[in-house]
């Protein structure tokens, strides 16, 4: 199921959640709606045109992905004028949302040039002086946002832990001392690495100027929600309208998908080139 799947089957699959079979468009057409939704199953998506984006291997920089997985991502887009939301749906037989050694997480991302310009940055995460903005959704963050506990037993239910210094008796009634002790054993969180949870959104905002330059965006503005479908994932990622994007000035968009069970992480991913993004 992981490999090349025909467009027809995908379109038919899609039809199970929509009322009629849709003919995909070569560009991403953004439909104007009254209200933005984060729900991938909301009725508003039914009337929105569908783009089927062909995915290619990230095989330009090491470590590369050499064996293809997700062949297509089905995309729809809506805007209320200030926010823009993208609905991405793809096939993935397994659900990978538990982190651990050699466990990788299902995810997807949308990438937009920071400036609307006919001279677009390189689609592989931009280039020096031509920044791209990336909104990145992950299945483990989705699980945490939906209430999965932020502890080791959520990942290994049979784990037994005899002692954490931060939870030792002498600190029982001192929440500040507890937090300080916990931070001492959790340097990534102590440093405020946004990647290292706990999270209130399953989407992370990033910027990049080429491969290996991915960094946190100045502020967290994206939201989202992903649901496991019978055959894969359906995810909505919403973010503010890109500056300068209008009906008169179209932009470009690119997508990436990671299939955790296929050891896809970081640079090991399926991606698309730029696709025209048009406001209807």
């Amino acid at each position: 199921m992981r490999f090349v799947t025909s467009l027809t089957i995908l379109a038919l699959l899609f039809a199970t959640s929509c009322t009629k079979i849709q003919v995909p468009t070569p560009e991403v057409n953004v439909a104007q709606v009254k209200e933005i939704t984060l729900d991938p199953n909301a009725a508003v998506w039914d009337a929105v045109s569908l783009h089927a984006s062909k995915m290619i291997l990230q095989d330009l920089v090491e470590p590369r992905l050499l064996e293809p997985s997700t062949s297509e991502v089905m995309v729809k887009a809506i805007t209320n004028g200030s926010e823009i939301a993208f609905r991405l749906e793809w096939l993935d037989a397994s659900q990978s949302d538990m982190p651990g050694p050699r466990h990788f997480i299902d995810g997807c991302a949308v990438q937009l040039p920071s400036k609307v310009d006919s001279n677009v940055p390189a689609p592989q995460m931009g280039e020096v002086g031509k920044t791209v903005e990336i909104s990145y959704w992950r299945a483990d963050w989705q699980a945490i946002v939906e209430g999965r506990a932020d502890n080791i037993n959520a990942i290994y239910p049979n784990a037994s832990i005899d002692h954490y210094p931060a939870e030792a008796k002498p600190l029982e009634n001192n929440t500040q001392a507890q937090a300080e002790t916990a931070a001492r054993y959790s340097p990534a969180r102590a440093l405020g690495n946004r990647r290292s949870g706990p999270r209130d959104q399953p989407v992370e905002d990033l910027i990049a100027e080429g491969p290996s330059t991915l960094s946190p965006a100045p502020s967290a503005v994206s939201k989202g929600k992903g649901v496991k479908t019978a055959k894969g994932w359906a995810v909505v990622i919403s973010r503010p309208m890109p500056a300068g994007f209008s009906a008169a000035t179209p932009s470009q968009i690119a997508f990436a998908v990671w299939e955790g069970s296929h050891i896809e992480v970081g640079a090991r991913k399926m991606r698309t080139g730029w696709v025209p993004l048009i406001l209807k």
Binding site: P63, M98, P99, G100, P101, R102, H103, F104, D140, D150, N151, I152, I155, S186, P187, A188, R189, N193, R195, S196, G197, V265, G266, A267
Partner: peptide, 22 residues
């Protein structure tokens, strides 16, 4: 938390922390 270092250290002396994902 890409775990490339865990893969690449032949002595296996880098460890992935599943709580901080680093």
């Amino acid at each position: 938390g890409y775990q490339e270092c865990v893969r690449g250290c032949p002595y296996k002396k880098v460890f992935f922390n599943p709580m901080t994902s680093t």
